[in-house]
Amino acid sequence: MRTQPYNVLFLCTGNSARSVMAESLLNVLGKGHFKAFSAGSFPSGRIQPMAEELARSIGYQEPLRSKSWDEFAQPDSPSIDMVITVCDNAAGEVCPIWPGQPVTAHWGVPDPVTVEGSDEERRKAFRSAWMMLKHRVDLLLALPLDKLDRVATQQELRAIGQTGAHRE
């Protein structure tokens, strides 16, 4: 039986919305069993206000910041068990070599940052991305990870990425 939480790194190019939302969801819903982080290949340097608002709405208290994935590829970085890309650009990029050889998966989520229109239309796009991520995090939390080997874990994580959006 594993006593340490699983470390999960969510990646997206800008690390301003989707990866940050996934980080906050898993840290709140998987507290004690998972420790989530997020980063970007080309971090924007800022968190989207609507993403931060959603993270705070579920009680996420940790500081949110846009950071480079290089922070997690250092010898003294936390050992990452799973790396999950949440945007198509990051999924196609050449990632650093992660210490510990984590399992990887892609959970593509439409980018709410690109939605133009009224605040209400933009808020709806952020909420939709949030619900898709929440659904996938819920599926991750339901996995019997202590009973799965590395290959099975990777297969399950990748299957989660194929699930559709949760409809409100």
Rank of each mutant, 00 (worst) to 15 (best):
L25I: 09
V103G: 08
T85F: 07
L29I: 04
E120V: 09
I58M: 15
S57Y: 06
Q61E: 15
L11H: 00
N7H: 15
H106Q: 11
L9C: 00
K35A: 03
V109P: 12
H135Y: 13
V86S: 03
Y60V: 01
Q4G: 08
D111Q: 03
S79C: 13
I58H: 13
F126T: 01
V83A: 12
W98T: 09
G108N: 11
D138K: 14
S66I: 02
P96E: 09
R65T: 07
N15W: 03
N15F: 05
W98N: 00
I58L: 15
H33S: 10
N7W: 07
I47G: 08
D119H: 13
I97E: 13
I84W: 10
K134Y: 13
S128K: 13
W107C: 04
Q74N: 05
F126M: 01
S41D: 00
P5C: 00
E52H: 03
F126H: 10
H106Y: 14
W69A: 02
F42G: 02
A91P: 05
R65C: 07
E52M: 11
A39H: 05
A129D: 04
D111W: 04
T85H: 06
G117K: 01
F34G: 00
N15R: 04
A51Q: 08
S38Q: 10
K67E: 05
G45I: 00
W98S: 01
S24A: 15
G45A: 04
V115F: 11
R136P: 11
F126C: 07
T13M: 06
Q4P: 07
K67P: 06
R123M: 04
E62M: 10
E23S: 07
M50E: 14
E116I: 04
R18L: 11
I58R: 12
W130K: 02
D70Q: 14
A129W: 02
G117H: 10
I80N: 05
L11Y: 08
K67H: 08
I84N: 07
A90K: 02
P75N: 09
K134P: 02
V94D: 12
E71A: 05
S68L: 03
P43K: 09
Q48P: 02
V94G: 15
Q48A: 15
K67R: 15
A91E: 12
P43L: 10
E71D: 15
D70G: 11
V28D: 03
P112D: 03
V83F: 11
A55K: 02
A125W: 09
G100I: 05
A17G: 00
A129Q: 06
L54G: 06
R46A: 12
I47H: 08
P43E: 07
V109M: 13
G32D: 10
S118F: 12
S24K: 00
S44N: 09
